[in-house]
Design a protein around this nucleic acid. Structure first.
Length: 416
DNA sequence: TCTGGGGTCCTAGGACCC
DNA sequence: TCTGGGGTCCTAGGACCC
């Protein structure tokens, strides 16, 4: 199947979190601003204004480092609700330009603009229209990259920043990419960069000249994708597929880093309970049931372990999640060791067996219903308005091998 | 520099099955 | 009989992204 060149836009909001904060507090405009927390806090920079970046501040940098580099910066806490609201506004603008829009994060999206020429004109004109409309509707700046692949569009939007448009015409991909550092290829991080450097590959042009089979030998599957990327192709799981085919989530997680490391069991357990409740609530909101639950444990020295357990039957109930997480924690925590971070993740989503498992799941369904009601009340009156007694939360018989009758869908095909 | 939080994908070994 | 050859699931860890 020969593929006509597509026209892909990558739209990236400029210094998104900072720009949104400026909408709420215009006095921040033109100043060095760091979003993500206060200067003395444990944490990293979520976004920095262009003024702050001039001092070497960038996202993912520890806040304390940012404060040293740029003492005059204004430090602002993040406001996820504000960013979500602005992101939705931006999304509306994008969908008015193309039916094929894929938000890849809160502040960037791919648009398939193939075949929209009659409506919007040639790519550069369409991009400028989009850019103006975005400014008018959201009061935010964006940059737009245009190419025949996601990869090219993405690299272009980066080069176009801030507040610009860049178009690489089909057929010019390799020439455009050749002089760039390999690190500029999306998916190439510190580790891959170092490994490429050790092979004498520094620029994308060097990569393009390298033998494909050698790359596969060095990097496995990833090497094959890299070879394609050097030519400007969308290769590898991250980039393949139609734009706008939004995939269902594969995991839901929450984690917490303490201001001060702690070995206090009561404190640790209460954090775990809270994290389990947050995960359970998200499962219920999305009408998902998960089979696998994972504990994440980071010690003072930053060594991190994960321990997972898969249930026979999926659940969305706080107490069943907590039961597993609590067990995993006490099986794996080096007693007395100070903990820096705890995390809880749910995955392996599937159907609950509610309809099949009549007796027990009649009760289960009631609990799920009740917890959803609690979720709604908490929305209305605040997180602390309702507390379930621990005894009530433990109101389930555990379904395990002791009770195989309660495990439907377990009949296995007989060995051949 | 003293390292957040929420995700996706990949690898690799062992269990288990046919 | 020095011992195969898949396939899938589970778990742990790690690279990478915004």
């Amino acid at each position: 199947m020969s593929t006509l060149p597509r026209t892909v836009f990558h739209v990236d909001m400029d210094a998104f979190f900072v720009s949104v904060e400026e909408l709420f507090d215009p006095s921040l405009k033109g100043k060095a601003v760091v979003v993500g927390g206060q200067r003395h806090e444990r944490g990293v920079v979520s976004a920095a204004s262009y003024e702050a970046r001039q001092f070497g501040v960038h996202s993912a940098m520890p806040l304390r480092t940012a404060a040293k580099l740029c003492p005059q910066a204004i430090f602002v806490d993040g406001h996820p609700d504000r960013y979500r609201a602005c992101s939705e506004k931006a999304h509306k603008v994008l969908t008015s330009f193309s039916p094929q829009v894929e938000m890849v994060s809160i502040d960037e999206a791919y648009l398939d603009m193939t075949g929209t020429e009659r409506l919007h004109g040639p790519p550069l004109l369409a991009a400028h229209k989009l850019h103006n409309r975005m400014k008018a509707e959201t009061d935010l700046n964006c940059s737009i990259g245009i190419g025949a692949s996601r990869l090219i569009a993405k690299v272009c939007s980066g080069k176009a920043k801030p507040n610009g448009v860049l178009y690489v015409i089909a057929g010019r991909e390799a020439r455009f990419l050749a002089p760039l550092d390999v690190r500029e290829i999306p998916g190439v991080g510190k580790v891959t960069e170092q490994k490429l450097h050790s092979l004498g590959i520094r620029k994308v042009g060097d990569l393009a000249k390298f033998d494909d089979a050698d790359l596969e030998h060095q990097f496995g599957k990833w090497g094959v994708a890299l070879a394609g990327k050097a030519r400007g192709e969308d290769a590898g799981a991250w980039f393949e597929g139609e734009i706008g085919a939004d995939e269902a989530a594969k995991s839901i997680s929450h984690e917490h880093t303490y201001d001060q490391d702690t070995a206090n069991v009561a404190q640790l357990e209460s954090t775990l309970m809270r994290l389990c409740e947050m995960v359970g609530r998200r499962l219920r909101e999305n009408q998902l049931h998960a089979r696998t639950f994972q504990l994440k444990l980071r010690y003072k020295d930053f060594t991190t372990i994960t321990r997972a357990h898969s249930l026979d039957a999926p659940t969305q109930l706080d107490n069943e999640i907590f039961q597993q997480i609590h067990r995993l924690f006490h099986l794996n925590w080096r007693k007395g060791s100070e903990v820096r971070l705890l995390g809880v993740q749910a995955s392996s989503f599937g159907e609950s067996f509610a309809q099949l498992d009549f007796l027990e799941d009649h009760a289960r369904g009631k609990w799920e219903h009740a917890l959803s009601a609690v979720d709604r009340l908490r929305d209305k009156f605040g997180e602390t308005s309702i507390t379930l007694a621990t005894g009530m939360k433990g109101g389930f018989r555990e379904r395990t091998h002791e009770n195989p009758a309660a495990l439907p869908g377990k009949s296995k095909p007989s060995p051949s």
